[in-house]
Amino acid sequence: MDQAIEFISNHPFMVAAWVLTLVMFLLFERSKAGKAVTPAQATQLINKEDAVIVDIRPKKEWVTGHITNAKHIPLSDLDRRMDELSKYQQRPVIVVCNLGQAASTATKKLKAAGFVNAVRLSGGMTEWKGQSLPIVK
């Protein structure tokens, strides 16, 4: 620990550059993933703005439980089945995966296809279930 403090005090510009690089990397990665909504915000979007839920998990995860009225389109089929969602382009679309990370890929694809209100569920189904929100099996 003493060596770290000594290094920091001897090289403040190098440490500052490293911290700045780290912060910029984290901000870039966050923006690349797209806007995320919490389960509480997702519930509000569903109830007040008639949001559409798109669950991109594989079928084996889908059958263990999903959000009520969610559309099941696995990520591997999204490009091929995009036309099924075209009628929802003007509504908020919430993309759901298991942990909330794979949804960023789907969200980017939806935004590129003209879905301006596409967001991902932060924490995915793991967070949804963790907050004891309703699921359908």
Rank of each mutant, 00 (worst) to 15 (best):
D2S: 15
A4M: 15
A4E: 11
A4G: 14
I5P: 08
F7C: 11
N10D: 11
M14T: 10
V15R: 00
V19N: 06
V19F: 08
T21Q: 03
L22S: 10
F25T: 09
F25R: 05
F25E: 11
L27P: 03
F28D: 11
R30Y: 15
R30S: 15
S31I: 10
G34C: 09
A36W: 03
V37S: 04
T38K: 07
P39S: 12
P39R: 07
A40S: 12
A42R: 01
I46N: 00
K48M: 12
E49R: 13
A51D: 10
V52S: 07
V52Q: 12
I53D: 02
I53T: 09
I53F: 11
V54C: 09
V54I: 13
D55W: 06
D55I: 07
D55L: 06
I56P: 00
I56N: 00
R57C: 01
K59A: 12
K60N: 13
K60T: 10
K60C: 08
K60I: 08
E61H: 06
W62R: 02
T64S: 08
G65K: 03
G65C: 02
H66V: 02
N69C: 00
H72M: 02
I73N: 00
P74F: 02
S76N: 09
S76Y: 05
D77I: 00
L78D: 01
D79Q: 08
D79R: 07
D79F: 05
D79P: 05
D79Y: 03
R81G: 06
M82R: 07
E84V: 09
L85F: 09
L85S: 07
S86G: 07
K87F: 04
Q89K: 15
Q89T: 12
Q90P: 03
Q90A: 14
I94H: 00
V95F: 01
V96W: 01
N98Q: 10
N98R: 11
N98T: 08
L99W: 08
A102S: 14
A102W: 00
T105M: 07
T105V: 13
A106C: 04
K108C: 03
K108H: 05
K109Y: 00
K109I: 04
L110S: 01
K111R: 15
G114Y: 05
F115C: 02
F115R: 00
V116Q: 13
V116P: 03
N117L: 13
N117C: 05
V119H: 03
G123L: 09
G124F: 06
G124L: 08
M125N: 09
M125A: 12
M125P: 07
E127P: 06
K129R: 15
G130T: 11
Q131A: 14
S132F: 14
P134T: 14
I135F: 14
